[in-house]
Nucleic acid binder design. Structure first.
Lengths: 356, 356
DNA sequence: CGTTTTTCGGCAAACGATTTCTGTTTATTG
DNA sequence: CAATAAACAGAAATCGTTTGCCGAAAAACG
């Protein structure tokens, strides 16, 4: 009798001699059911090992208690920290997360999003560059709520959780300037990203304000990868006038800079200062020891998930909300004052002291 | 008319004037449907933007094209690489993955597994220590197939994908021995893990065979974390006779060793050689530069996913299969021959040259 | 032309829950 | 005693598919 397939609500109904509707009501804490009956039903459900089929109730309720998380690449160390935060609140709220890798490929992201929508996710969290493309928007404009992390749309106002790029970049540049650096290189993220774009702008204005050198050569366009940092460092080293400090778009990229610097026998921070962004777990290790702009990724993930869940549960009247989370400069040992260097080295780094 | 809710198969049925069954058959490539009709239906489906509801078909088919992946901790850099491999084949096979963090907490793993089962996942992949506990087994013995990664059960034979710990550990010890090391410290993983257990045993037998020192002080019990490595290094440094080389249970742990070594002003590899295990992406960076036993994690993840999917699709008659994947020693700069050291240092490291 | 066989499609029953509705029994209250 | 309410049964609709079965039309055959 109970040998065939899964135990359904019907099974516990017949077992207790009650009707399925009563069992349903009893189990889901509805009123108008005798406490004694409720107890009995619960006991029987427990005893039989009854677990309601999530897919059956999804179909009926049009709610799956499931959220889709689209990330560019799980293997990037910063991403799991966001996921962690998302997962923290997902578990607390009884949601399960679908994880999808997009590899930053737009077609792939589209197909992943379609799949998620087919699966009737209650909402989505996107940690990806793509959110403005019309094909993506077509999928997004439906009734499935979503939250963007670290990538704001230029054209639309959405729920968004991001870091305070303005203050953060300002702090970074100011810090390096205070150390005496005037020739600061920047390795950007992909400029299609709002965050990377914002940071670049603030970098330029703050640099100007504080009297840093304004030289287009000092901007290297990267894409948040180790390779970008590696190439960026090589590029900066090849310049006739090498920068005395580098700001990397993120820590992963800074890792690439360190790698290349080591290869070039350039010491950090003696020959060149390096400032990262993110504060990935590894940054604190002494062999990395990266001064960086901390971005509370786990908290951001959690904030995004909370925002999403609130949006899901409320009746979609609330206006889009943007949560901007402050960053914090974490000072370790990858930046040094400019004047600790030998004069010779400074000369080498900046042969013509005729500032333009 | 089409304003309300999602577009269902019924909508495309009425649009084409066919019955829903016909539409279903046409769309899913069943025979016995006129090619002209099929074309019409497909066209209409396309035009209306019809997408079959995955949850409805899950309910009907009792197949969700969904797999659950349970990991101990996404933030551990090794984990995403496994996930990557799983995701690669999942996408290829049209599956979506549910990701769950267990934090190595058994109750949490249980509840996550229950949720996955409620969601009717077609199968599960476990990258977790817990797989032998009766509560877990109760959930596993059902009809939902599963594959274990890097953790074999002592009591049961399951589908399993793991690395060749015997050969790998052998290679590691042999390599260090060839460099002249005889006093080798080992930081183990949690010994509840079959992998950690296996490695410990092979370490001991190989050490004995090759004439290394056999000293229980040389075994430090860790748990695959950075902290374990950090504490392990401090422990070894505090020994009257410090080992001249250390094998870490995994790279993350080795990172902790490096961190502590740096703190203690011990140079790797000059003062102490360090051999990791995993070969996480970061290990190759010059500032880390870790010699390590490469474990093809992405391939292992892929192998696990393939095994699982084959198990799902076949009619569960096949006997459990264990896939053991060979490892490869990747030589970087964290290990050095013993005799490159100054005699003084060797003395300091091993004051009493009276080998027991 | 009549009969058999294919081919095509429609009908309706699942899948497992929730929810609504009607109806019956019992207990409570004025 | 009548009226009301509470507790529950039972049936049915619903969510969106898939699929077994059956019938009609068309094609093939004698």
């Amino acid at each position: 009798m109970r040998s065939k397939g899964r135990i359904t609500i019907r099974d516990v109904a017949t077992a207790t001699g009650h009707a399925v509707s009563t069992v349903s009501n009893a189990l889901s804490g509805k009123p108008h059911v005798n406490e004694e009956t409720r107890r009995q039903v619960k006991e029987a459900a427990e005893r039989l090992g009854y677990r309601p089929s999530a897919v059956a109730r999804s179909l009926r309720l049009k709610l799956s208690s499931t959220i889709g998380v689209l990330v560019s690449d799980v293997s990037n160390p910063a991403i799991p920290e966001f996921i962690r935060g998302i997962d923290d609140v997902a578990v607390r709220e009884g949601c399960t997360i679908f994880l999808c890798n997009t590899d930053e490929l737009i077609e792939r992201q589209i197909s992943q999003m379609e799949t998620l929508l087919d699966r009737q996710v209650d909402g989505m969290i996107l940690i990806s560059q793509h959110c403005d493309e019309p094909e993506i928007r077509k999928l997004l404009d439906g009734k499935t709520p979503f939250v963007l992390i670290q990538r704001r749309s230029a054209r639309y106002r959405d729920d968004y959780v991001g870091s305070d790029n303005i203050q953060g970049t300002r702090d970074s540049v100011t810090y390096l300037r205070q150390l005496g650096h005037r020739r600061i290189g920047l390795i950007t993220g992909p400029l299609s990203s709002s965050t990377a774009q914002e940071r670049l702008e603030v970098f330029e204005t703050t640099s100007a304000e504080l009297g840093c050198e304004q030289d287009p050569e000092l901007i290297f366009r990267g894409d948040y990868t180790v390779e970008a940092g590696y190439r960026g460092m090589h590029y900066f080293a090849s310049l006739p006038q090498r920068p005395t400090a580098i700001i990397a778009s993120n820590d992963v990229c800074a890792l690439g800079v360190q790698d290349a610097a080591s290869e070039l026998r350039l010491s950090i921070p003696k020959d060149i200062s390096l400032l990262g962004c993110d504060d990935i777990d590894l940054a604190r290790l002494r062999q990395i020891n990266l001064s960086t702009l901390r971005l509370p990724k786990r908290e951001m993930g959690a904030a995004a998930a909370e925002l999403l869940i609130r949006r899901i549960r409320s009746k979609r009247n609330i206006t889009p909300r943007e949560i901007i989370i402050p960053t914090q400069l974490i000072l370790r040992e990858s930046c040094a004052p400019l004047d600790t260097r030998s004069t010779a080295e400074v000369r080498k780094a900046a042969p013509q002291p005729s500032d333009s």
